[in-house]
Amino acid sequence: MGKRFTCHKISEGRAEAQAIVSKDHIMFYLIDPATGTVIEKAHDLEGRSIAHKALIFPGGKGSSVVQADGLYQLNQRENSPAAMIIEHPETVLVSSAIIMEVPMVDRVDPAFYETVKDGDRIVVDADQGIIEILEETEDSK
């Protein structure tokens, strides 16, 4: 069993996925729905895809409508993040995650942030309030 950390449920659900860590706030509207690739200039994740990943990020930014549409478009093409781990939740992103049914958690044990590395396979279980970093496998290297 891997290392487990507590967290707090925002949007229900459970997902196992590869972690992707963003230092910058996320604007879902500037992510290409067809590929999940971040197209925002000078963004920490510019050129990388968040599709099917467990997205670890500080918070959302940008207009109150386009976040929902960005996530919706990703959802329609099955390129949403598998789960979201957020430090500073705000209503716009929280309501988008709930409506689009993407698991989302916050208030994660601070040790998680020191341990998790980009590319780790993790389980985000919002319902149980647990994040688990799985043992490293060949696939995740």
Partner: peptide
């Protein structure tokens, strides 16, 4: 007001 999204404000 909180920083509502379009959806939550409609709700």
């Amino acid at each position: 007001t909180n920083r509502e999204g379009a959806n939550s404000a409609l709700c």
